[in-house]
Design a protein around this nucleic acid. Structure first.
Length: 279
DNA sequence: CCTTGAACCTGCGGGC
DNA sequence: TGCCCGCAGGTTCAAG
């Protein structure tokens, strides 16, 4: 479900809901594992302590405490929402975070590809889930030249490369296709054949697409809901994602006809592109 | 190290 | 109606 824009939007909404600093009273688990076993010591780490901020790194949410972070990944179907007093929990509610003044948040995740964990203050850059992450696409250290160097000699398709969180974080299956369309690069191209000037276009395209998607509250195509239950709207602005067989919204040939969007599985995921606009 | 494909898990929609 | 198949905004692991 969530790529960088969705996680960023959830982060901003959680910030509105929690209004840090806010003290946690307890953390409850309604099952013993999500993607990984839920560590019982996590409860002790957060009970009675204050959340002083909420951050995002890649597709991870980080609830900041004075000596570390509660790390949350939404996987494909994970969602945080507020649960009001007296409300009963529903199917796939797995974790509940209670605050001293009655606010409660629930983590719901049907497929359980998401998880939560604790990160010690000093382990921020060495934690298993965080240490291999590449640059944040919206920060200044995401640069075309660095990207170009990382891609040299790589034979995997460029689309698989930009979804690799070691190369750049936050780009998932939707925004990979959309960004490559914006940059005019065919997703099937070997990454090592992408030129420096194309890398410049790609960096700009990734930045632009993710920024626009954040402003739209992300994309809701199946299940994604943000923390207040609302849907994103960026799905109305897709040029290629899930538009296979439909006319390209950008190109026109001399007879005024539009190319049909192609699709194919790349890196195990459905991928979409315009055969005329993308070289 | 690099690449590819399968696995994890649940739900939904389409085809028969 | 019901069953089976494929597919879904992610990540990790094993095999070649």
């Amino acid at each position: 479900m969530p790529e960088l824009p969705e996680v960023e939007h959830v982060k901003r909404q959680l910030h509105q809901l929690i209004r840090t600093p806010r003290r946690v009273v307890s953390l409850e688990f309604f099952r013993k594992d999500l993607r990984f076993p839920l560590s019982p010591s996590l409860k002790k780490k957060v009970a009675g302590r204050e959340i002083v901020g909420i951050e995002r790194r890649a597709k991870y949410l980080l609830f900041k405490f004075s000596d570390g972070w509660l790390l949350s990944h939404l996987g494909m179907t994970g969602a945080w929402r507020e649960i009001k007093p007296g409300e009963t929990k529903i199917l796939h509610d797995h974790v509940r975070l209670n605050f001293t003044d009655g606010l409660s948040l629930i983590f719901n995740d049907p497929r359980r590809f998401g998880f939560i964990d604790w990160v010690d203050e000093e382990a921020r850059n060495s934690h298993v889930r965080l240490k291999h992450l590449g640059p944040e696409p919206l920060e200044t250290d995401f640069q075309a030249e660095d990207l170009f160097k990382k891609l040299r000699k790589r034979t995997a398709p460029i689309k698989a490369m930009i979804m690799d969180q070691r190369i750049v974080v936050g780009v998932g299956n939707i925004y990979a296709s959309e960004a490559l369309f914006r940059a005019g690069i065919r997703p099937t191209r070997a990454a090592g054949k992408v030129t420096l000037s194309e890398c410049e276009k790609l960096v700009q395209a990734i930045r632009a697409i993710l920024t626009e998607a954040i402003e739209s509250g992300g994309s809701t195509i199946r299940t994604y809901r943000s923390a207040d239950g609302s849907e994103g709207s960026y799905q109305t602005r897709f040029f290629v994602y899930e538009r296979d067989g439909e006319p390209c919204l950008k190109c026109r040939d001399s007879r005024n006809s539009r190319a049909k969007i192609s699709s194919k599985i790349i890196g195990g995921r459905s991928t979409y592109w315009c055969p005329r606009c993308q070289a």
